[in-house]
Design a protein around this nucleic acid. Structure first.
Lengths: 188, 188
DNA sequence: TAAATTTATCAACAAACGTTGATAAAAATA
DNA sequence: TATTTTTATCAACGTTTGTTGATAAATTTA
C-alpha cells in the first residue's frame, strides 16, 4: 500500500467515524503518523478529498445500476438485483457507502447541485421500476413515492455494521434476508 | 413566540440543514437577526444546545415507546404501534427527528456513551419483540438482527420529506403505506 | 554517480471558530 | 416612579482551522 493509498483509506475511515466537518487535516496526519503539511503532497484540498471520495463511489454505483436498469429483466427482478449490487458495494467499500449516505451535503456548489441532481434522477428511475411492477401485477398497489423512499432507506444501516465488523452473518445471507424483508415483509 | 423559542427553532432548523459541526453560532445569530454575543443570553454553550435538543426528543420517544412495550398487546401489534409513534413524532417534530438520526455522534463524553447505551437498550427491546413474534407465529422466521436494523432504518427518510414539505400524502396514509411495507413487503 | 523526482520537516499565515466581559438599552416588576 | 430583570451592543480573547513556502532528506531515474 503506497502512502497515498494509506491516506485515502485513513481519511475515509475518519470521515466515516467523525463526519467530514469534524475530521481535520491534523487528524488525518496523526492517523498516518506524518506531518500536517505532508498531507498536501497527496491531496489538493480537504474539499477535493471529499469530492473524489464521493464521486468515485457514486459513479461506480450508478454504472452498475444502469447496467441492470437498461436490461430486459422484469421490474421485480431488476429491483432484486439493485438491492444486490448495493449490498455488494457496501461489503466491498463500507466507508465509501457511509460517505454516500451521510457526507454528500458538505459538498460545495456546483458539485453539490450535480450530486443532488444525479440522486434525483436515480430516485426517478427506481420509482419507474415500481410503477412498472405495479402495472404488470408483480408489485402491490403501493404509494410509489413512499415505497421508493422506504425501499432505499431500508438498506442504509448495513455500512455501519460492516464497517464496525459487528455483523454475524455473511454477505449472501444478508442479501437473502434483506430481499425477503422488502419483498415479503415481516409477517407470515 | 419568545426570543428563546425562536432561537431553539432556528438552531434546530440550521443543524438539520447543515449539520451540527457546520452550524456556527454566527449562523444562528444571523438567522434570528441578532448579535452573536446575544445568543449566549439564551444558551450556555453550543454543545449544551445540542444536548438539550437531543435528550428532550430522545426521552419523549422512549417514554412513548415504553408505554407500548410494557402493555399486553401482541408483539406484532406493539411493532405496529411503535412505527405509529415514530411517524407521529416525526410529523410533530421533524427537525428533532433529524437530529436523533444524524447528529448524536457529536455529543461528547459522558453524554455520548449515555446516548449510545440507551439506543442499544432500545434495539434489544425491538429484537425481543421480533423474537416473540416469531415464537407466536405472527412473524416469519427472519434473522432477528437484520430484521431489526432494516425495520428501524426503513422509516428514516420521513423526517427529511416532512421537514422540506415535500410530502404529497398525509400522516395517516404514510402510516398505512409504511405498515404495509414492513409487514407485507412489495410483492402481491 | 549525477540529476530529478518524490516525500518529509518546520514554522507560520490568515480566517473562522466558540466564548467572555463590560456596558447600555428595554421591559417587567414593585 | 424606582428597581430589578431581561435583552442588546461592541470589541476582543484564545483556539482551532485549512493552507502555504522554504528547505532538507530520501528515493527513483538517467
Amino acid at each position: 500500500m503506497t502512502k497515498k493509498e494509506k491516506l485515502l483509506h485513513q481519511s475515509l475511515k475518519l470521515i466515516h467515524e467523525k463526519g467530514f466537518k469534524a475530521t481535520t487535516i491534523r487528524d488525518i496526519a496523526a492517523s498516518m503518523d506524518c506531518d500536517v503539511a505532508n498531507v498536501y503532497n497527496f491531496i489538493d484540498s480537504k474539499q477535493g478529498l471529499l469530492e473524489s471520495h464521493l464521486f468515485s463511489i457514486n459513479e461506480e454505483f450508478h454504472l452498475r445500476f444502469d447496467e441492470i436498469n437498461n436490461s430486459s429483466f422484469e421490474p421485480i427482478e431488476k429491483i432484486k438485483r439493485i438491492v444486490g449490487i448495493y449490498i455488494d458495494l457496501t461489503f466491498a467499500k463500507p466507508y465509501q457507502a457511509s460517505l454516500l449516505v451521510n457526507e454528500w451535503r458538505h459538498l460545495k456548489e456546483p458539485k453539490l447541485s450535480r450530486f443532488i441532481k444525479e440522486r434525483e434522477k436515480f430516485e426517478i428511475k427506481v420509482k419507474k421500476l415500481i410503477k412498472q411492477g405495479i402495472k404488470d401485477g408483480s408489485i402491490r398497489k403501493v404509494d410509489v413515492d413512499i415505497a421508493t423512499y422506504t425501499l432505499l432507506s431500508s438498506v442504509r444501516w448495513l455500512f455501519n455494521k460492516v464497517a464496525s465488523g459487528n455483523l454475524k452473518v455473511n454477505r449472501i445471507e444478508v442479501e437473502k434476508q434483506l430481499l425477503d424483508f422488502v419483498l415479503c415483509g415481516l409477517t407470515v
